[in-house]
């Protein structure tokens, strides 16, 4: 009984976390786009290097993306891609 309960809790947390990642990525994407960057290139650069220089401070985008671990972002992107296929 206890095990089933813990499993459900974990799933709920992941869903929340996934939504948080998506929301932040969208906000960062828009901020980069508004500043005239190629948002995909900039976000990929950040994920590869870990350097926040890639992300504009406009609309607090740099601080927002720093709230996420890069491995979590990659996991979410990969999951979305696989699920879509």
């Amino acid at each position: 009984m206890t095990e089933r309960h813990e499993g459900t809790m974990q799933y709920k947390f992941d869903m929340e976390n996934n939504e948080k990642i998506k929301e932040i990525l969208r906000e960062v994407y828009e901020a980069l786009k508004e500043k005239g960057y190629n948002p995909i290139n900039q976000i990929v650069g950040y994920i590869l290097s870990g350097d926040p220089t890639y992300i504009t401070s406009y609309k607090n985008a740099r601080a927002k993306i720093r709230k996420l671990e890069r491995d979590e972002i990659l996991e979410e992107l990969l999951m979305s891609f696989i699920e879509e296929k």
């Binding site: 290139n41 650069g45 220089t53 890639y54």
Partner: peptide
């Protein structure tokens, strides 16, 4: 991999250049 390498790459990309991997 210095931050200023990334900053210069960002600037050039904002000008329309195609530079990837700066910071690595």
């Amino acid at each position: 991999k210095e931050p200023h390498v990334v900053d210069v790459a960002n600037f050039l990309n904002a000008m329309g250049a195609n530079i990837k991997g700066a910071g690595t």
